[in-house]
């Protein structure tokens, strides 16, 4: 469980994190979504006690991070996969981490195995690909078998196999009842992994909602195709829908649900060859939430 209350961080004159209040419960994947510079990484540094908040606070299991005894046994974090000394062997990197928190040395081999790095554990990290460094960063996050996991942009630089592996890992960690926070600027990736989304822009929390609700709120539309030329478009418009023609006798309908569209078609003897309800993509929802007008207003409030 991670709780932030009015969390604020100012670097110089720039307010990177602006009065964030949220709580991240265990057992689900919470996504931290926002464009680059939205304040995701700054917030994570505040959670980990690396930076001190200018105002407000953030608690991990009810305590400030810096008050945790052996924090790696409670919280594991992947911040920047490249933040390792290139001259050090992978096993030694994990070994010193384990030693800081009195974690048994056998755990080093376990996490090397979990992340598929057993064969390269003796190699110096400087020769690793970004994907291998990403795996090493995840091994480091798992070293204390923590109940809270934080992954900052975990799929960056991974090949498709790696992306698939990490998605599965994140889902399974949450399924085990752990608290999982994943940040990303990739909306498609979030849609596949997160159950709940915190959407950030310019340091402010714009949305705190379940993924399903968020996608549903986007509305979506219905794609309809008829067998031949038909007056369906006019009929649906008369029925209150907005209709946009698409190639191949297709109609994109908003404002009427599929049942109603089917009824209208049946009543006029029009044969349908396709009737597909389409959910709004997260990308559309995201763009709407973070639209420039909203940001402009937010800015004005922020400087008032």
């Amino acid at each position: 469980m991670i709780e932030a209350d009015e969390l604020t961080k100012t670097y110089g004159r720039r307010r990177a994190v602006d009065r964030l209040t949220f709580h991240i419960p265990p057992g689900r994947v919470t996504g931290f979504l926002g464009p680059n510079g939205a304040g995701k990484s700054s917030t994570i540094r505040l959670v980990l006690g690396l930076d001190s908040p200018t105002h407000g606070r953030v608690l991990v299991n009810g305590r400030p991070y810096r008050a945790l005894d052996r924090p790696l046994r409670r919280v594991g974090a992947l911040l920047d996969a490249n933040a390792v000394h290139g001259g050090r062997r992978a096993r030694d990197h994990l070994r010193w981490l384990a030693e800081t928190n009195d974690i048994p040395r056998a755990r080093v081999d376990e996490v090397l195995g979990l992340t598929g790095l057993t064969e390269v554990g003796h190699r110096r990290v400087g020769g690793f690909s970004l994907g291998m460094k990403q795996r090493l960063g995840i091994a480091a996050a798992l070293i204390g078998d923590p109940e809270i996991l934080i992954f900052d942009e975990p799929v960056n630089g991974l090949d498709p196999d790696g992306v698939h592996w990490i998605r599965g890992l994140i889902r399974s960690l949450a399924a085990e009842g752990r608290t999982v926070l994943v940040s990303s600027h990739l909306m498609s990736e979030m849609q596949l992994t997160a159950d709940h989304l915190l959407i950030l822009a310019r340091g402010r929390l714009l949305s705190d909602a379940a993924m399903a609700d968020l996608v549903r709120s986007g509305g979506g539309d219905v794609l309809v195709r008829t067998a031949g030329d038909s007056p369906l478009a006019a009929l649906l418009t008369a029925g209150g829908a907005t209709v946009t023609p698409e190639s191949g006798r297709g109609l994109v309908v908003t404002g009427l649900d599929p049942t109603r569209i089917a009824e209208v078609a049946a009543a006029h003897g029009i044969a349908l060859v396709e009737l597909t309800p389409r959910a709004a993509s997260l990308e559309e929802v995201f763009r709407r939430i973070t639209d420039p007008e909203l940001q402009y207003r937010a800015d004005r409030e922020g400087t008032r």
Binding site: P71, L72, L79, V84, N101
Partner: peptide, 18 residues
């Protein structure tokens, strides 16, 4: 300074906040 240069320092202080 090698810790600051490589960024390892963040792992160090996340592991040992004191």
């Amino acid at each position: 300074t090698a810790e600051y240069g490589t960024g390892t320092v963040r792992a160090t202080f996340a592991a040992a906040p004191r």
